[in-house]
Amino acid sequence: MSAAPAIAAPAPVKPEGHTLPVVVICVLIVLAWYVAAIPMNWVVTGPKAEAAGGGLANLLLFSWNEARPVIPAPHQIAVELWKSVFMVKPWMPKSLLFHGWVTLSSTLLGFVLGSLLGVVLAIAIVHLRFLAKSLMPWIIASQTIPILAIAPMLIVVLGSLGFTGLLPKSLISMYLCFFPVTIGMVKGLTSPETMQLDLMRTYNASRSQVLWKLRFPASVPFLFTSLKVAVAIALTGAIVGELPTGAVAGIGARLLQGSYYGQTVQIWAALFMGSFIAAGLVWLVGVAERLILKRMGARP
């Protein structure tokens, strides 16, 4: 073997910041948005700009400040968000916080119910072999049916049984979000190695001991991955659940009202509110994941 070349000490690796790339992308999107707003709003704003004397300044002024545009400019959405979040009292129906809370509450209830159902189904599937064959096709089929087709029927049926308001919407969230949890947990609960299962067998461990001491702890990373997907689609479910009910409150109701009255700015503001809630929920699940996995001895 030849003499090894002198090895320089590796430079200390700095953790890369996320801030700059995120900011750059956001700025680019906003810029593209402003540019796109000009041709997209042309039908409405072109004649007005012409009437005001034409010119670039007039075109921009009208394209970016139209009250009922095809696509509102970013600052219009920001102003609408500001007004409907901070300028009205949060319990008033004009407040986006009020609508956000209505949707959030049914999202959370649906998420909890759906996650529980998902975990219970996964445990059953892992322990009863015939269920894997008999139940799994139904679980997969359940997700191939468009939720927009199911939601109105469910709402009507539950309504005739006397269930209105929060619960029917939550059930639609649950219907959507149990699925990733079941799939992830089946994978997680079957993730222990043969050796670890053999080890429990040498102890003559009961099935419930194998479940709680081996399978369940081994599945926790899988659970959190599923929960992040589940919480986001639970919100989608809650919004979809608000559409066919003719609900007067909630992000979905706000979207619906906006489209009735051609209030595109209001629609976009509600959309943004919805995505802020989704991002917050996913972030919270991520925080819980880090805390719990750290307690379970995960490598930092």
């Binding site: 050796m195 670890q196 080890l199 040498t202 003559n204 081996l214 702890p217 081994a218 379970m296 001895g297």
Partner: peptide
């Protein structure tokens, strides 16, 4: 529970 068994790998529970 007459015996203790040591496997080829440690098979410790990482958590």
């Amino acid at each position: 529970r007459a015996y203790g068994y040591v496997f080829q790998a440690p098979a410790l529970f990482p958590w």
